[in-house]
């Protein structure tokens, strides 16, 4: 564990909490893609199948459980409790376009053709593109609430910090995981356009609005 990895985990946790608090306090999930949230929940389930077979540390286990509970909580709030506020007309990205390639790729390119390993690989590939329905929704409506922007910024920061963590680990520990690193780079690149808008607009107090 190094400071970049810890910061990445914290950024991820902050993103999840921002989203839950936004939905809970405003009693609305307007502007949030339920499809992205489903993909994140699927990602966590597929990746943390090793929760009971691969013990790493208390920290690791607790964080896994928190991520799982929070992602299920978010999906529950969106599709059950505050269903009436869910903006499904704008949440039209086709999930099979992301899930099927992720399944196919995880069966072809993995570290080991074993059940847990393939599920882990699938979760890595799926997570790298899971934000696309959300970004698609923002581009479709042409804007995002500030709080949604903060959520996306925290979520993008998480993977960017993980990249720094991987560089650090490569040089300090000789550790590297090519699958996680390449997928992580793809994932971070997807946020670049958003990062630019966030820094040039949201941080200056303006609403995130896409150029017409």
């Amino acid at each position: 564990m190094n400071v970049f990895r810890l910061s990445g985990d914290v950024a991820h946790l902050i993103a999840i909490i921002i989203l839950l608090l936004k939905i809970w306090t405003s009693r609305s999930c307007a502007g949030i893609s339920g499809k992205s949230q489903i993909l994140f929940a699927v990602t966590f389930v597929a990746r943390y199948l090793d929760l009971f077979t691969n013990y790493v540390s208390i920290y690791n286990s607790v964080m896994k459980i928190v991520y799982l509970l929070a992602s299920f909580g978010t999906v529950y709030l969106m599709y059950m409790k505050f269903k009436a506020t869910y903006d499904h007309n704008h949440d039209t990205f086709r999930l099979e376009f992301l899930i099927l390639p992720a399944i196919a790729l995880s069966l072809i390119i993995n570290h080991d053709f074993a059940v847990i390993e393939v599920f882990w690989t699938f979760s890595i590939y799926l997570e790298s593109v899971a934000i696309l329905p959300q970004l698609f929704m923002v581009s479709k409506t042409g804007e995002a609430e500030s709080i949604t922007s903060h959520y996306l910024f925290a979520l993008g920061s998480y993977r960017a910090l993980y990249i720094v963590n991987w560089i650090y680990r490569y040089y300090m520990e000789g550790f590297y995981d090519m699958i996680a690193t390449l997928a992580g780079i793809v994932q971070t690149v997807l946020y670049c356009d958003f990062f630019y808008l966030y820094i040039t607009k949201v941080l200056k107090g303006k609403k995130l609005q896409l150029p017409a």
Binding site: R5, D9, H12, D50, N54, V56, S57, N60, M63, K64, Y67, H111, D112, E117, W120, Y162, N165, F175, Y176, D177, A180
Partner: peptide, 10 residues
């Protein structure tokens, strides 16, 4: 099996 990186990250 030996070349599978350890899964200690989240």
């Amino acid at each position: 099996e030996g070349d599978v990186p350890a899964k200690d990250e989240l």
